[in-house]
């Protein structure tokens, strides 16, 4: 089956939550994304892999429009979330980002208490009632497998947590706005192996409720945790397929070279 056929079938079946269509992105004169057609399936983990500078992080950020703030950026094509174009004229980015949460490379909790970190998102979206906030904070921390570790110190500064805990706090913070898609930009690259393992286990749980897109430098990680993998090279999407299939029998020569460690 061709990629196009697979895609059309998947969109029709309702498996695909999010897809990009002929997505091009320029930073000034640099053509950073060259006609990306990629689909993200609901309740699965999709890994974006590729060597540094291949455009995988840039592609991730187009999904919640975090590239908008970059100066001299130009985007054409479309990103479709549940049938709506993310780059449509009437789209409110704050609502979009509530639906498409993001976790960054290095843990970046705000210099506030654990509680206020989680409650930040709901608060800026107008939730004021203490009972509601308490409930959201607890649910988000449970969801990020952090509740038991911090439930007695919700008023302590978030920056007093360990690095791994901080990253799970950031995941909890993203969960608090009630997203459907979770974008993760190399979420474990600043963490030790044990914290990394915890986050990977967490992702396996989270995909029951969320669709996850993760950028990773680490091919073992992609193989361990993802259901689908997209391989980027020089701004192009070379191959996007089920992870087991791609790692066992890549269709493209370049993919094979990369995953067998011949470059990158």
């Amino acid at each position: 089956m061709t990629m196009e056929a697979i895609r059309t079938e998947a969109v029709r079946a309702g498996d695909v939550r999010l897809y990009t269509e002929d997505l091009h992105l320029h930073y000034g004169d640099v053509h950073a994304l060259k006609g990306i057609n990629m689909e993200i399936r609901g309740h699965h983990v999709t890994a974006l892999i590729g060597p540094s500078g291949c455009g995988k992080s840039t592609c991730l950020k187009t999904l919640n429009r975090m590239n908008d703030v970059v100066p001299r950026v130009r985007i054409t094509g479309s990103v479709v979330l549940d049938g709506e174009d993310v780059y449509g004229k009437a789209v409110d980015v704050t609502v979009l980002r509530r639906k498409v949460g993001m976790v960054f490379q290095a843990p970046n909790p705000f210099p506030m208490s654990v509680y206020d970190n989680i409650a930040y998102g709901p608060r800026v979206h107008g939730i004021r009632r203490r009972i509601v906030l308490d409930e959201i904070v607890e649910r988000s921390l449970v969801g990020a497998a952090l509740w038991d570790e911090v439930k007695d110190r919700l008023k302590k500064p978030a920056l007093s947590l360990s690095g791994g805990q901080q990253q799970r706090l950031c995941i909890a913070r993203a969960l608090a706005t009630g997203p459907e898609v979770l974008l993760m930009d190399e979420p474990t690259s600043a963490l030790d192996p044990i914290s990394t393992l915890k986050i990977e286990e967490l992702m396996a749980q989270l995909k029951r409720d969320y669709s996850i897109v993760i950028v990773t430098h680490n091919m073992q990680q992609a193989a361990r945790i993802s259901d689908y993998t997209a391989f980027f090279l020089l701004g192009e999407l070379v191959e996007c397929d089920r992870t087991d299939r791609m790692f066992a029998s890549p269709r493209d020569r370049r993919t094979e070279d990369y995953i067998t460690g011949r470059f990158g």
Partner: peptide, 27 residues
């Protein structure tokens, strides 16, 4: 104030002004 604070605030759906007055200025 480190840029990641602002990124995080924006990614959570803050407007520009919310990210400035609720995160950056307090920091």
């Amino acid at each position: 104030v480190p840029a990641p604070y602002e990124d995080a605030a924006l990614a959570l759906g803050s407007t520009r002004l919310q990210s400035i007055f609720k995160v950056i200025v307090p920091a």
